[in-house]
Design a protein around this nucleic acid. Sequence first.
RNA 1: GGGCCUGUAGCUCAGCUCGGUUAGAGCGCUUCCCUGAUAAGGAAGAGGUCGAUGGUUCAAGUCCAUCCAGGCCCA
Length: 968
Amino acid sequence: MSTFERVEPRVRFPELEARILAFWREADVFRRSLELRAGAPEWVFYEGPPTANGKPGIHHVEPRTFKDVYPRFKTMTGHLVRRKAGWDCHGLPVELEIEKEIGTSGKRDIEAFGIAAFNARCRESVQRYVGDFERLTERIGFWIDLSEAYWTMSTDYIESVWWSLKRLHQRGLLVEADKVTAYCPRCGTALSDAEVALGYRVVEDPSVYVRFPIVESPDPSLVGGSLLVWTTTPWTLPANTGVAVAPDEPYVQVRRAHEALVLARSRLQQTLGEGWTIERTLPGSAIVGTRYEPPYANVEGAHRVVAADFVSMEEGTGLVHLAPAFGALDLEVGRREGWPVVKPVGDDGAFTEEGPPFVRGLFVKDADPKIVDDLRKRGRLVRAEAYEHSYPFCWRCATPLLYYARTSWYVLTTRIKDRLLEVNEEVNWYPEHIKHGRYGNWLENNVDWALSRDRYWGTPLPIWRCPAGHDTAVGSLRELGELAGRDLGDLDPHRPAIDEVRIRCPFEGCGAEASRLPPVIDAWYDSGAMPFAQWGYHPELGRGIEEFERSFPADFISEAIDQTRGWFYTLMAEGVLHFDSTAYRNVVCLGHIVDRDGRKMSKSLGNVIDPFDVLDRQGADALRWFLLTSGSPWSSRRVSLEVFDEIVRRFLLTLWNVYAFFVTYAIADGFDPEATPPPPLEERPVLDRWIWSELQLTVAEARERLEAYDATAAGRRIERFVDDLSNWYVRRSRRRFWNPGGEPSPDALAAFHTLHGCLVTVAALLAPFTPFIAEELWRNLAAGRSGHPDSVHLADYPEPDPAAIDPALGTAMAEVRRIVELGRRVRVETRIRTRQPLRAAVVDRPAGSAGLAALVDLIAEELNVKAVRFADRASIGRWRAKPNYRALGPRLGARVQALARALADDDGSIAGRLAAGETVAVTVGDGAVELAPSDVELTREVGVGWGCGERGRPRRGARPRDRRDPRA
RNA sequence: GGGCCUGUAGCUCAGCUCGGUUAGAGCGCUUCCCUGAUAAGGAAGAGGUCGAUGGUUCAAGUCCAUCCAGGCCCA
């Protein structure tokens, strides 16, 4: 009966991981890891809900790995870390997926299909994709409670969101306003700024210069001429109500033949070119008040020139066409001037009856050429050309967006901007520059949050309006039932059921029938509400209060960098709006995973790596280890399937080999860690004390780096330890494990205990990073022994033993390894194989320095020499000195270069005296410099008759070898 | 157009906070060694205008400025 299970030297990690997953399931380890910490201080983690739309890609594994490593670490250091999964269910992406499925295009089609049927499909789609995400989550070993996940489409969640919206409405922070927003005529909805930003493309649009004939002016000499107006959206000309000028810029009236035009002086050359005479120059303010004949007659009382501060002198003519329906600035000016909003375009983006007859029914962009033709025919066109610029398109359906005055609901986040900035100061960002860089800038430029969406699959805006215009915000189904006079407890709060609920307007003395306003809300609001809504938090219903208060704000969140404008913002905004607090204290902000050419992974490029390909081939540990330790987590990282092979070979197999080596010989020698007590550390051989000291340093650094949210540095330190363990400790100790048959000797016992202890500690160190292989090692080496729990994930994270740290030994061993490396090189260079024993190796170091004496056996064994001698310095070669720039630079300034030349010319006499510890005066230029030994770095040149390896700064130590009598 | 990040060997990346004169690692490639961890291990070699230019400095991969390229975010 063996103490340890035999270990297959050939390991298939995906199969191993399947076994571990089964163990975790059967032994219920995740739940027990929480129970173990019941009553411990909580460390709060929030899961940013993935949008359950589309299959998960490898870029979903990255945040999920970081969301796993820190909670696991914190659990192992004695915290209770509850982990509630979540799914983002609503939103346009889900709708578009269904539109594709059922072959609809646009809102009319959806309504014909039926909102009830459409939303049912959306719900099914979400559930289907959540299944894929759950499978991935489990497979990568991301421990999170999937059974208790919050779904943003659940009734409790929606009611919680309603509660928050009702409060905003009561506080006057949720308002309806006419604003110009980017609007997709195909999807039939306004887009958020973030969505708009997704779809900029460089396109060619017409650039037209149009005459606006002047009919009346404060300066009568202008009458008879025309304003020269520039636009790249001819289709907006039918909505023109005014022209803006820069009041302080000089404008000119120019003439050629019978034509007189007015434009900015600085734009003349580029727009009209040669052949025009300047008749007069006047400031923009002198043109203000001028009336003109609009390109298309529409309303009375407008069509004037006004002053504005946004008129550019970089392009155009300095005379800006204003169409309040189609531009934010235009609308602002129009309001100020009292102009009506001319809106000749319908929600579908086509001209209505209010447009000129020849474009009615045409999509606006298709109307451009017709309008240009019409202007030309009517003699209004001065010039038309193609103009290349970037223009936003719908990020989902590629329809050109229109800027469009529409009624929308807004959360007045500009009112809390200062508080957001304050609260941001309390947050630790990793990397730090995001705080005042990308994220801070975003907060500085805060605009009100356009919350409503004229769509179907989303949290319905809970506002009911009666014919008298009274708006009532409703906070729950119970409240809605009371207002409607019937029990609505079982109602699905989604459209269309909710649309059918009519209430009696509760306004004083009104009582008219009120119906819900049609919009749903931005899905980003849903996810930003998760700190409270995940618990169905609802003070009025007495629900989720304790859970929320216990877990707000979060200690830790982590997502990719694109969330600065997404979840990082909505989470914080809602934290401040509802609770006047940040929603999180530490954020790990990750870079993107890109393909081998540095391109973003996207379905359309076909460069997406399916995470299951990696998981089936190299396994979850390899994938996780790559994400955690390779490159910098905050910069984008290139991946290909091959990079994971390297992880397996370089790290996982190295560790596995050590593990398999240990188990093989432990079984062969009958080693049982419990049967024989470990020898006291001070009685173990120096190599054991060295690796044990390194282990303590590794433990200390891993803990420190993980506390600082730097899993990358922690992981790299562990990897270096494993390399030391494999390629130096085991390499040098191998023979100590060979005791076939007999009882292990005391030396073998020390080796077995040391290696066993290292492997058990490494398993615990690695548990948060590579939970599968860590568990495998633990299960075989530690579980059930010495009171260890049956899973590494129920263990405490290792603590360093400061008493075992021996810095001098570490330095000496590093020196020994360098000496050995040099010795091996000498053997190669002199072509004397290592299997050929030699009489001596001579090391050019003072004997006994840095504790080397204790380690000479290692050198001798490794190099296969009978003795290691330390050199009689004078006997070998001569000394050379180089300036120690760090010391001499500040003292000598430019003369340091002359000194360097002097030392280069030295025949060894100066350097020799310095090496002997003397202070030497060296002539440099016109003066002398006193050099102390510490002012130079000394190296050796070695004479003939020696095989020699040399290592330069900062550690001298030329290492010559005697080759005069090679045969021993 | 603006903000932030990135640019170091064929590939993936350290080093840049705090400047020090021969810029490192792993992988890949070539040659060789080892053969009781062997789908391992060791040594050597080739391979770099540290994105470009200018500046500060005795000294710049590192600091400053400008520019170029890529990414993300915002217009």
